[in-house]
Design a protein around this nucleic acid. Sequence first.
DNA 1: TGCCAGGCCGGGT
DNA 2: ACCCGGCATGGC
Length: 210
Amino acid sequence: MRRKLFIFYEKLYRYFGPQKWWPAESPFEVMVGAILTQNTNWGNVEKAIRNLKAKKVLNAQKLNQLSGKKLALLIRPSGFYNLKSKRLKEFLKFLFSNYGGKIRKMAAADALSLRQALLAVKGIGRETADSILLYALNKPIFVVDAYTKRILSRHKLISEDATYDEVQSFFMRNLKNDAKLFNEYHALLVKLGKEFCLKRRPRCEECPLK
DNA sequence: TGCCAGGCCGGGT
DNA sequence: ACCCGGCATGGC
């Protein structure tokens, strides 16, 4: 099982190459993107990010000062914008009340207690919390998403109805505890999902895992 | 034209 | 402990 998981990784890496995740200029941008991309196409998130950058508010201080109303307008292209505006505000409240708005201070906390704290924020669930930990703070935590579950269960590595935590621990039990590896592996699974496992035109015959 | 995208929450059973 | 509706835009 352990070996199979690593062979998958090697096949994907050979086929697709390094994915350079997360596409962002700063850890804070990763955190914002992680919330904006909830059940949302990444292309739409990019538009929202562009709006925030154009207004020069893509940093903790400025975003914290911005009204929820104005924030919602700026992130409109990412969908669920009223909801996500509130969620970003909840996250900022967390960041300022615990770490004075300093990502640096947040990064100093240990991964597991940070995860607990993030999960207590309204609007931050497992995937969002783990994306923040791995892709913004470089903590060795494996991120699970819809693609990950679909791919692993279709290849019979996990059961179809495995929970998030079960899938995550499957990876973390069977892989070297390495943030770089977790980073690349999850990004490769998403790439595979997008390229080969789409419902419309699945291309299972040409799949690099075949 | 409808379906889907790198979820999460709250209420109902 | 599950199950479901709501949240919304833009691309194909």
